[in-house]
């Protein structure tokens, strides 16, 4: 029997918004440590890794490991039926072929349940090597979303260059070129607005704007975003999800031919 109860169903609504444009379907792996999802987009250029820890749920029970193949468009429809303040419970029997979502309104006057069929998806788990990144940049997530949106008007690619002075985002194309430089913030009273850079050695990599703009759909999940970069390895874009977990996006770089 699997049962997970979350007082803030808005977290799940935001998680679905953060992955549904990149992935059509995905397997939610449930175990006693929590819910994990790892899936590449159809072009194998990007990968989503979601982790929701069991201790972040208000109630969590997972008697036996359960892999639920889910069509994300269907799950998005169900999550749209939930109010932001509803309490959400996911329930599935062992080796079930369906999962039930229950939503309770805060005053318990409205109780809804939606049963969704599960899919048989073949699992393709990738080994992601632990990496000691040359540059780790923390910045406001809204700022990063704005930069990706603005620069994607100038070209298909963004060059992210990180030195000890700061981080520069550049794009060029038919209409011209654009550069946005962020310096490390000295002392900010609100850490959510800080820009911090840990640099072992400088790095400059090129990435497709399209995928970065998919990743920034996760912006509502966290006020800050963390970019990790090393030469010639995929970029990691990480958003914390409250106290319950994180969503990590990996993006393969573009290389000069």
């Amino acid at each position: 029997m699997f049962e997970a109860r979350l007082v803030q169903s808005s977290i799940f609504k935001k998680v679905l918004e953060a992955i549904k444009e990149l992935l059509n379907e995905a397997t939610f792996d449930c175990s006693d440590s929590g819910i994990q999802l790892q899936a590449m987009d159809s072009s194998h250029v990007s990968l989503v890794s979601l982790n929701l820890r069991s201790d972040g749920f208000d109630q969590y029970r997972c008697d036996r490991n359960l892999s639920m193949g889910i069509n994300l468009a269907s799950m998005t429809k169900i999550m749209k039926c939930a109010g932001n303040d509803d309490i959400m419970t996911m329930k599935a029997q062992d080796n079930a072929d369906s999962v039930t979502f229950m939503f309770e309104s805060p005053n318990q006057e409205k109780m809804s349940d939606y049963e969704m069929k599960l899919m048989n998806l073949d699992q393709e788990h990738l080994g992601i090597p632990e990496t000691d990144y040359s540059c780790v940049i923390k910045l406001p997530s809204a700022e990063f979303a704005r930069i990706c949106r603005d620069l994607s008007q100038f070209g298909e690619s963004v060059v992210i260059s990180c030195t000890k002075e700061g981080v520069k985002f550049s794009a060029a194309g038919d209409i011209g070129s654009a550069n946005i430089k962020l310096a490390q913030t000295a002392n900010v009273d609100k850490e959510d607005e800080a820009v911090s850079i840990e640099m072992q050695e400088k790095v400059s990599l090129t990435f497709a704007c399209r995928y970065l703009n998919y990743f920034t759909k996760a912006t509502p999940l966290s006020p800050q975003v963390c970019l990790s970069m090393s030469a010639e390895v995929p970029l990691v874009v990480e958003y914390k999800i409250g106290e319950i977990g994180h969503i990590r996006y990996y993006l393969a770089p573009k290389i000069e031919e």
Partner: peptide, 14 residues
């Protein structure tokens, strides 16, 4: 021009 790499060349299938 620049060529888009695939994640398969960085992450190995388990």
């Amino acid at each position: 021009s620049s060529k888009q790499m695939k994640l398969d060349s960085f992450f190995n299938k388990k």
